[in-house]
Amino acid sequence: MKKIAIKRDIFIKIGLILLSLFLLFLFIWLGFSFYSMQGGNEYLIPIINLEEELDRKVAYESLNREGNYLEYRYKIVTYQIAFEEDKYVLYAYAYDFLDSYEDIEDAKFVYELDKDKGKFDFETLEWGQPFYITLRYRVDKDFNYFIDYSVSLLKKFISGELSMDSKGEFTIKRDMNNWEIEVLEPVILE
């Protein structure tokens, strides 16, 4: 049986080449990410991963970007409000729940609002009165944002979902900064 002798240098060279390629990849990847996440160049725009019943059961009416803020606006109706020491607990459903559900029991959800993140006198609400609730999230383009953006960009690239012609979305998780309520004309229920 013939023994094949392999020189150690080869491994080192291969290692160095791979490392160089990896660093090159990192450089390109992160560099491209950093470049593209700057204003106007994004290939991906952020959306908040709400992971809450409100978002699962109510389709937001609008998603606006105001500076560093993302605003989600939902049109809902409450049927019960509980006042706790530091929060309001809304028992609610989507205003247009019939578009998605046959039975309102499936559309109901509970959502908590921190009292220190917004102000509203719920005693002014009529029974069955719909309102817009706007949830505002601050999204700074900081290091966390860069990491989220870069990773998402790479994933989209690998999966082939990344398009140079249109902007995709990527999900981030942030805490809500404040909320706001805008009351709509009441629906008169006898």
């Binding site: 049927y79 028992y91 459903y93 729940f97 019939l98 046959e102 039975d103 309102i104 029991e105």
Partner: peptide
């Protein structure tokens, strides 16, 4: 049942 639920929202 669904129609009544949707009309009256809650059993309260």
């Amino acid at each position: 049942k669904n129609a009544i639920h949707n009309k009256w929202i809650t059993n309260e």
